[in-house]
Design a protein around this nucleic acid. Structure first.
Lengths: 196, 196
DNA sequence: CAGCTAAAGCAGGTTGATTTGCTTTAGCGA
DNA sequence: TCGCTAAAGCAAATCAACCTGCTTTAGCTG
């Protein structure tokens, strides 16, 4: 698990290289044929020597994972004071996250070949997803409400979004994301079964 | 209908090779590091020349896709006469499908690098998923009921299962699969539907 | 059972990613 | 500013997947 902002020499060059590589990776990940998403290719586009990438990140998976984390950290979720509104915003944001160019490539990277890599990568990914959600729920609880458990929301909001994006199901748009939330509210989630 | 065993020369050798390759692929797909899941590796384990695989299937993706289809065709879904029971069986079967060894590898194969490959692969995969579901729904309609639309069931049953399996969420077991169905029945749509 | 031919095997050769030892660059602290 | 050293660059070697032309095997059919 690589250290994100490189403790040793945060100075100009390393930072520049990192930025260039991140950018190059993001660009390439958005392109059609992700088969061409390879370390030498990233290096070339970044104007950097392949060796550098090999030595600093070792594998494409690792690099992708790192960048995935980095792109996740720019979402500023603010509470509106209303659970439903917050959840809708959350759903829409999640969908946007998934559909932005290269989304699948990053997802793929996290569903990594090696089982241990995968576990840790996905755990991280899941935690990021849950974090946004928890914030919303926390706010709700702060208002004295009793929102449904996060687990349930993952199942009913995040899971369908992932599923439909991955499978390219048509009409998976913002309206659909909102509909998912609407569904929750028209239902009786109070009587939720106990998920041991 | 039995298009399975190669139209041209269904005779002994081809069939044997195919069986050996399928088996080898399945074995390897179940192992820890799927990085080692490569054509030469499959060939070696199958006791077959790599060239054979290259010529017959071309790419690992194609082979995986074919085997994925083959392993999907052994599920005999029989209707019990009760929608809920059928759905539970369907959910449990889907979960079993996903969690059986190598499940993730196959899924990964279908979330393929190339966007077109992906679309077609996933379409197929999705169609297989939907097929089982449609059968259940058809049976239900045959009984004069009005079951929820397939789309909704995909969202509320299949999607969470996929999601949780991919993300290794703990406690994603048979009981959970049933709970998903139970949820549906305690939820909204049944108010608009007569359930004997 | 004998010949035809699709499919399997084999031995190269090609391509492209990954590795390695070394040299060069350029932050950073004295 | 100067020297130290982490990190980047470079070149050549390695290694593995994948391809190609050819030979061999073995179902099938007459």
């Amino acid at each position: 698990m690589p250290t994100e902002p490189l403790a040793k020499r945060p100075g100009g060059r390393s930072a520049r290289v990192q930025a260039a590589v991140y950018q190059a990776l993001t660009d390439l990940a958005g392109e059609r044929d992700v088969t061409r998403l390879t370390i030498p290719a990233v290096a070339e586009r970044a104007g950097v020597n392949p060796t550098t990438i090999y030595r600093r990140w070792g594998t494409l998976q690792a690099l992708l994972a790192e960048v995935a984390v980095a792109r996740g950290t720019d979402a500023p979720p603010s509470s509106s004071g209303d659970l439903r509104t917050d959840l809708e915003a959350y759903a829409v944001r999640t969908l946007a996250d998934l559909t932005r160019p290269g989304g699948i490539a990053f997802f793929r990277a996290e569903v990594s070949p090696d089982i241990d890599e995968r576990r840790s990568g996905l755990r991280e990914c899941l935690q990021r997803a849950t974090a946004g959600l928890d914030m919303v729920l926390e706010a709700s609880r702060g208002r004295g409400e009793t929102p449904p458990p996060a687990e349930r929301l993952l199942d009913q909001i995040v899971a369908p979004l992932y599923f439909r994006v991955v499978f390219s199901v048509p009409d998976t748009d913002e309206a659909y994301a909102r509909a998912l939330v609407a569904d929750l509210f028209s239902g009786t989630w109070h009587s939720a079964v106990e998920l041991h």
